[in-house]
Design a protein around this nucleic acid. Sequence first.
DNA 1: CGATGCGTTGACATGCCTCAACCTGAGTGG
DNA 2: CCACTCAGGTTGAGGCATGTCAACGCATCG
Lengths: 203, 203
Amino acid sequence: MFAPGRVLLWAGEPAETVFRIVSGFVRLERYLPDGRRLVASFPGAGDTIGLCAPDVYRFTAVALTRVLVQRTTRRAFFAAARTPEARADLIDRLAAESCALNEELLVLLHERAEQRLAHFLLSLAERAFRPIPAEPVVHLPMSRADIADHLGLTVETVCRSLSRMRAQGVVAVPDPSRIVIRRPQLLRALCRESPGESAGAER
Amino acid sequence: MFAPGRVLLWAGEPAETVFRIVSGFVRLERYLPDGRRLVASFPGAGDTIGLCAPDVYRFTAVALTRVLVQRTTRRAFFAAARTPEARADLIDRLAAESCALNEELLVLLHERAEQRLAHFLLSLAERAFRPIPAEPVVHLPMSRADIADHLGLTVETVCRSLSRMRAQGVVAVPDPSRIVIRRPQLLRALCRESPGESAGAER
DNA sequence: CGATGCGTTGACATGCCTCAACCTGAGTGG
DNA sequence: CCACTCAGGTTGAGGCATGTCAACGCATCG
């Protein structure tokens, strides 16, 4: 059990323990020598952290909310896959996970601010709801700064992009940590938009 | 054996075969619905492609040079890891590989054009030489457009950034497909630079 | 010789970053 | 209860970097 703001594990420490998040949200981050912060991802309930590191943890894990975890030693985690099927399944899951992360980063790299944010909101919504309802209310456990450092933007740009979406009627922001996606289709359209074109009417 | 420009495998095809590159360079790419192209990576000799896809290939693989490959079925590839040690080793290699890719993308996402290019050139140099000599001559098997689509930039920006580096004496460009890194230390410094500051003198 | 593809450079527009100010809500102490 | 502080969020003004559009050089190929 970790309170908001507490550190689950530090980047650079020997990676002996694997954490499985039971409930709550976590922020994976690392600082560059010049002081900039990279936020890798925001794992939540069901996600496993501390895996992708053969020797030491790559990122510091900070609790965003109250977080409940299950701990396993790294060795025990892999030993659990005894049968060939379980092994193949484990490998497949690992591969799929890293694949998804690569996809996400690769797409983000080529997108503009508003598209990055749209992409981010959709991925949050898809994690919380499946399928996505008509007007999903997405809870944002992370600050604007966290989002900015995750998307490679500044806080101001994140705010402005959000405001623009609000002005277009795509989302509503009842309070800073909650976002209502009022037009999921339009949000999806924002993701697909080329850098050149501006938003056309939809629906 | 594939000639330059030939396709080794298509994104979307069932991923039955795993390719190990014996010699040459390959470009992994995919097109977005709007026509933009994402270039995921440029695997070379020793790299394995077609792995990260449980069901279908994620990226089309195009030969940049003459390419020699070894083919294995996906099943045979995983069956090769019989002993627990071999299995752990395989998992570790997969994890390390995807980790490195994530790192790269994550860093690129937060960097400006010139830093991205510096990063890219260094990674190419480190692949070719180990350790890096005083003035390494890096061969670029890919076009400027390939680099641009890999780094999330435009061809013009790649050219301009290169020209600026040339003007600063960091690199020399005897011909478009060859780059001499004349000041590796300065190139490294460029990578570490914060977006705000400009290049100070070094050495 | 012209056609073509790639690389490079220039002029201009625009998106994002920087710096600054202001607002709000939560916490704190009077 | 209010005044105050503080952190986070939002908005505005201005500058810089990058995208866009265009032109040109150069090599290759027919």
